[in-house]
Design a protein around this nucleic acid. Sequence first.
DNA 1: AAATAACCGAGACGGTACGTCAAGTCTTGAG
DNA 2: CTCAAGACTTGACGTACCGTCTCGGTTATTT
Lengths: 192, 192, 192, 192
Amino acid sequence: MTQPSAMGRPRDSNRDLAILDATLSLLAEVGYEQLSMEAVAGRSGAAKTTIYRRYRDKAALVAAAVERRAPAKPPQPEGESLREDVHSLAAWLASSISEQDVGLLGALFAGMRKDAQLAQAMRRILRRDETAMTDRLVRQAAEPLAPGAAALFAEVAPAVIMHRIVVVGEPCDAAFVAHLVDDILLPLLRHT
Amino acid sequence: MTQPSAMGRPRDSNRDLAILDATLSLLAEVGYEQLSMEAVAGRSGAAKTTIYRRYRDKAALVAAAVERRAPAKPPQPEGESLREDVHSLAAWLASSISEQDVGLLGALFAGMRKDAQLAQAMRRILRRDETAMTDRLVRQAAEPLAPGAAALFAEVAPAVIMHRIVVVGEPCDAAFVAHLVDDILLPLLRHT
Amino acid sequence: MTQPSAMGRPRDSNRDLAILDATLSLLAEVGYEQLSMEAVAGRSGAAKTTIYRRYRDKAALVAAAVERRAPAKPPQPEGESLREDVHSLAAWLASSISEQDVGLLGALFAGMRKDAQLAQAMRRILRRDETAMTDRLVRQAAEPLAPGAAALFAEVAPAVIMHRIVVVGEPCDAAFVAHLVDDILLPLLRHT
Amino acid sequence: MTQPSAMGRPRDSNRDLAILDATLSLLAEVGYEQLSMEAVAGRSGAAKTTIYRRYRDKAALVAAAVERRAPAKPPQPEGESLREDVHSLAAWLASSISEQDVGLLGALFAGMRKDAQLAQAMRRILRRDETAMTDRLVRQAAEPLAPGAAALFAEVAPAVIMHRIVVVGEPCDAAFVAHLVDDILLPLLRHT
DNA sequence: AAATAACCGAGACGGTACGTCAAGTCTTGAG
DNA sequence: CTCAAGACTTGACGTACCGTCTCGGTTATTT
């Protein structure tokens, strides 16, 4: 029992993969602004039409590519103390944002004016990891946390990390993560 | 003896003002990506040549326009308590970022790949207000602060505000500022 | 012994009709250049594959459609004088060319460079009516004609009519047909 | 005293020449349909925008190119008889149409549906030579002609020549020109 | 009855060219 | 040397068709 409207040649999923892979690699190489649809088509071996059949424009393509990238799996907070739990989460978050989200932020800025719906979609992707972390922390922390502590973590940690990368312009190295955990996150979580 | 730079027709400073004003108004209207040099030229009445004689490219123009905008005068923290001081600073910072820095962030993303120096300049502008605030807070707070508390404020407050605007996509209204002050900033400053 | 071409499902002749009808109507509406295979498929309800299985490309489709159109039946020259015979033939030819051959001329121009054989086929179609007329005139004229007179008619009459439509850009109304007959065709035929 | 509207960098006439030359040579090589704006840009060394600044679309470009081509100088009818005059004009017309007007006819067919004004312009170009001939013949013929004879020549001669080339598909060689003159044109002119 | 083979609709695919837009450079004439 | 105007090259945009190629599914003939 198949609906007759779902006919025609099905889309080639190999094309999907090739297109998104090419997008991600180009995004890492040249950034969002310099990324051209023509370059994505060339590298992926797909025709421009094939890309535009799937994604309305560049911002939508980048959003899809970033969404697909990683299953957003924060590490199991297997530490024996709250500090270890928070530290492993913060370190994972820092590397995740550094590597992947910077390009997405460019797409967000480009898209937020011209297409509010697309901007909303990109915000959802950006916050997906934060939400995942919140749940992880609140359920599996070594110490019981005050209500709202996890939400506070999800609000402050990504903010400070992004600020570090984008505005300060310096990498989130081990020293910074330690500072973030010891001077900002733990005091906040314990005080609440 | 005249220096060779004083040769020929001098630059018309009215042109400078017109160009930067047009840039700022367009930036507010359409955002960085949609801002075109041709539109700046049209609105300012200046020729494109005149703009490019002053600014190397679009990112540099936007950086100059934003730099010139407001003298970045944080309010005198005349409050009688630390909370009032912090609250007035945070409120000023939120409105300042909302109104002006969002466009600059777009320029920062566009410029950071193609010109590291320019990106550094834009970072400097973005952090100018933060620095001003730091000094203001540490010198004039109603209560004496622990060393490093002001730096922590400058690190966390703009980060959370930008995150709110860009990633969460919601405005920094009074309720949010109160939450920021009471749940994040004051605990941090007092704990240090 | 069965020929292998009789295998499988036979072609649906309804499809043929629908395709050629759609082609003719679109040809009349938008002309050869603006006629797209996709539009023919849409209007006829046939898939593009079904069209391309029958006709190699757009020019071949248009040629087939025009060939099928009218059986090219010039009227019986039942007039009582040579003038009436020539006039009825010229009037029929003028309306025939106006209505049908203009689109075919576009196909001819498009096809003559890329496929000489196709161009030849379209020329054959265009000249089919002329040949039919020649025979009709020479056999059934009210007056006996000099040898070669009919060929001359077939050479000059369509030429002047097409020139009128395409180059001059004016319609072949009754006044023009009278002019064509009295000032050009009859003098030629009588002089020969 | 210069009108202020005539300011700015003037158009580079070298570009004009290069564009029109490239158009004409491509037109002769591949015909109207296969002629692409990108190829014109490539061969002329001009950017596509430079072409589009001058000509609205392909049809307008081709029309301009053909208009510029030859000054349409029919030969002086220096013959000593009417037959020689008519023959030299017909021979010149045949070569002129063969070499240049076939591409223009393609443009005419493409343009007549989408832009009536452009079609009118191309018709004017096509008829320019005919008009020139008419004048030449009526003023300088070896024999005095009946009134209307020259108009008749201009109506019939190009028509039969174009019909020969386009519909019959055979070249206008010497034998054809002789046939045209002796069997069609002279009888018509003398009869009138 | 089952297998085979060509048909049909739908629509994805790699291409080519379209006509548009903006970026940043260059060329005038005037001041 | 500056300014306004605007032509120029470059390169990417997103769209429209082209002609080809799967798909699932439908008739016919052949075995």
